[in-house]
Design a protein around this nucleic acid. Structure first.
Lengths: 105, 105
DNA sequence: TTTATCTATCGTATATTTACGATAAACGAA
DNA sequence: TTCGTTTATCGTAAATATACGATAGATAAA
């Protein structure tokens, strides 16, 4: 149960909710900012900047990658992470669309 | 554990993550749109439009109210819900700020 | 070949989220 | 007062999320 009902909503709302879910932890917002600030972007670099263990940071990266907000290029054993502009642009557009609808700004 | 580390991040990131959390379920995005479309806005009206029970809708409303995205004016036993423009404006601004930083748009 | 480095994943514990039915509380109407 | 309407909350169950340490796998360096 629990998450099954989610699929009964509009695809557009499900997509944006999923992006919002990826942004729903400050660590992941922080990671996106770090990836923007740094050009070199390994998991280990991020671990040094956050109060989280390596495995936890790796999980957060996985969640961001799941929705396509970031991508990881493997250069084993390293993985170079960077933001995915295509998805970010779509996310920005869809958030704008939502707020323009629901907010009298 | 689990959610304790959340507090160790920047207040700005925590706030936006919390707004994103409130937007992380399609039912809640849908509710915000419904509240915008309708001027009369009772919990029961929303229940009729969504594939969810009354108690579940009430919980979603509570989550939106928790972060201040909506407000409920009690006219017992009814509660008239509407969007809170002040918080929406701030959310819009903060999302813009985030995307302008991390997205090469 | 052996060692060091780096990251993903496994196993695990705890907390939170999602969903529902039942029920209590608040009030207007009969 | 009694009944109907409306909503929040309680209790509960199942699924997810968060966090960590340990470890396996991949490769570069020694």
């Amino acid at each position: 149960m629990a998450v099954a009902k989610r699929e009964e909503f509009k695809a557009e709302d499900i997509w944006l909710a999923d992006i919002a879910k990826a942004l729903s932890h400050p660590a992941r917002i922080s990671i996106l900012k770090i990836l923007t600030d740094m050009n070199v972007c390994m998991c280990g670099d991020i671990v040094e900047l956050l109060p989280l263990s390596q495995s936890t940071v790796s999980q957060h990266l996985k969640e961001l990658k799941r929705v396509g907000l970031i991508q990881g290029d493997v250069d084993a054993p390293k993985v170079c992470y960077c933001v995915n502009n295509k998805t970010l642009q779509k996310a920005k557009k869809e958030f704008d669309k939502l707020f323009n609808k629901i907010c009298a700004c």
